[in-house]
Write a protein that binds this DNA or RNA. Structure first.
Lengths: 212, 212
DNA sequence: TAGATTGTTAATCGATTAACAATC
DNA sequence: TAGATTGTTAATCGATTAACAATC
């Protein structure tokens, strides 16, 4: 964001496609490819080439006229745009199966997210380590958050518990919540809530299945 | 779909919002409410009332002029539209943490999906029951699928295994795949693949966090 | 009646798509 | 040169939003 005011904002649709590009670029980079055209990327992602060209242009990905986009530079542009070039330390609340699945997903480190603590209320989970991450009792939330100065929460608790935990998180000064519970959370305007609703995907699947 | 040809198709955006409405309607129905206006629903979901009105009109939800939409009838309209009024039997491949999380999610029964089998290659998982669902060895895929006449697969295997399993599934005559692996699957045109990409949500969160 | 609401049509907005110039 | 590609502008399309009539 320069001194000349904000540039035209990038659409959510574009933002949500970026990780796809990043995965392909990462592979290509591994093979030693230096340039890639939008038609090449289109083949891999099965998106229209023009969409890809526009998306990459929107985030200012470097290119060579006539030859395509620079693989390494474009990776860096995406990572920089998403802030994935430095790690955000985050923590997880609700160390059930879903929580454990997320803790076990090593890919987050490449996505700017490092889970450094987990919380749960089940006595048999508290004190455990899942994938090297200590599980604390939820009662210790405030203390650990403040000590480690954490600002991002991943919420994988059962629906009925979500709003209560959220209120605590907000009181602790959390700035972002990635919510996997199927519940609309009430938060102050300055807290970012990213809702992950698995039912939406299922609905889409079912609708497409009916139509086909 | 009447004999006069297909009605104007409902947008994916609308489809993905339907489960939200269904949840609120379900609550209201539990309280005995019979009618609900789009402004009421807007308050609960924090979507613009006009969006809700349009969405519900698009699927032909019943209403009473001036009084709002009929709670029970609208629930039925959504469930019917999504095919959630009768259960689709499905199975899961990959009984790790994420798979176990999905098997443990009882909510699917209200969403038209019943997981009746799971598959994995880890010897210590095979033969187990997770939430009452038997885990078979992946080698038994074909036999079990045919015996139970299953058409819908939920894929929760590691990325590198996804395409291989998919080829097997396609050969078994599967019609739909709900894919949680961050991999674009290659399938014939008549197989529906619903891609669930967790990185998209994270990208959106990170972009919003940077902007705020 | 007044007011809140659905029903319906029109206007707006922005994402996608197309077109074509520039260029190596 | 010819061809493939980015760069850039314009056209299209469809979702969202607004407006207002009908009505109980």
């Amino acid at each position: 964001m320069g001194i000349f005011g904000k540039r035209k904002s990038v659409s959510v649709q574009t933002i949500r496609r970026l990780p796809q590009y990043l995965r392909v670029l990462c592979d290509l980079h591994g093979y030693g490819r230096e340039l890639v055209s939008s038609t090449d990327l289109a083949e891999e992602t099965r998106l229209p080439p023009i969409v890809i060209k526009k998306d990459l242009q929107a985030i200012g990905a470097p290119s060579k006229l006539r030859s395509g986009f620079k693989v390494k530079g474009t990776m860096e542009a995406i990572e920089n745009f998403l802030g994935w070039d430095n790690l955000n330390r985050a923590f997880l609340v609700g160390a059930g199966h879903l929580g454990a699945a997320l803790l076990g997903f090593s890919g987050f480190k490449n996505h700017g997210l490092e889970l450094v603590a987990a919380f749960d209320t089940h006595p048999e989970r508290v004190g455990e380590e899942i994938n090297g991450v200590r599980v604390w009792h939820t009662a210790q939330l405030k203390g650990v958050i403040e000590e480690k100065n954490l600002k991002i929460a991943v919420l994988t608790v059962p629906g009925p518990a979500a709003q209560g935990i959220t209120d605590t998180l907000v009181a602790c000064g959390i700035k972002a919540i990635w919510n996997f519970a199927p519940v609309k959370l009430s938060v102050p305007a300055d807290v970012v809530v990213q809702q992950e609703d698995i039912a939406s995907g299922l609905a889409e699947l079912c609708a497409r299945l009916k139509k086909s």
